[in-house]
């Protein structure tokens, strides 16, 4: 029994016609697996490599460059919360927003809450500086955060 479902493998294969070679599908494949499984395990790397006709170490080499992808020792919680810590957010209270989220879930950046609900990370500039400080919850950016509004937001997760 493999790690990746046939459906997931087909979603990866759907990317092949977009590129002249299969190696270019490494990032799309990692995203698909990561989204579906909340991690990219060693077993998944081996199966991605098989599909893309690469050595597993080549897939791992690429994956490990991007902090974005988590292995099986760092499985993501249900939600991923990124708090921006770059300059525009820092100047307008981004660090305090991060501290608030840490206190709320009793975790540090990089950790997942005990109930598995939230993985907290810091982000480098999210490109939403007109609404600094900002945070990204999964795929949605929330702007103009402060200690109160971020509390209300994460309360609902």
């Amino acid at each position: 029994m493999g790690v990746l479902s046939e459906e997931l493998k087909n979603q990866i294969r759907d990317n092949f016609p977009k590129y002249p070679n299969k190696r270019a599908v490494v990032l799309p494949a990692l995203h698909l697996v990561h989204d579906a499984m909340r991690e990219v395990s060693t077993g998944a790397i081996v199966e991605i490599a098989e599909l893309l006709e690469l050595h597993p170490s080549e897939v791992h080499d690429t994956m490990s460059f991007y902090n974005f992808f988590k292995d099986e020792k760092h499985t993501l919680g249900k939600h991923r919360v990124w708090v921006c810590r770059s300059i525009s957010c820092m100047l307008r209270g981004g660090e305090e927003v991060l501290e608030q989220v840490c206190n709320k879930f009793h975790i540090h950046p990089g950790q997942t809450s005990a109930d598995g609900k939230v993985t907290l990370e810091f982000a480098e500039c999210l490109g939403a500086c007109e609404g600094a400080p900002c945070i990204l919850v999964d795929d949605e950016c929330h702007m103009d955060m402060d200690v109160e509004s971020v509390s209300a937001l994460i309360e609902k997760l």
């Binding site: 770059s86 480098e124 500039c125 490109g127 939403a128």
Partner: peptide
Amino acid sequence: DESEPGTFNNR
């Protein structure tokens, strides 16, 4: 890949 801190015009 707009990521220079402070930049959001392309977004």
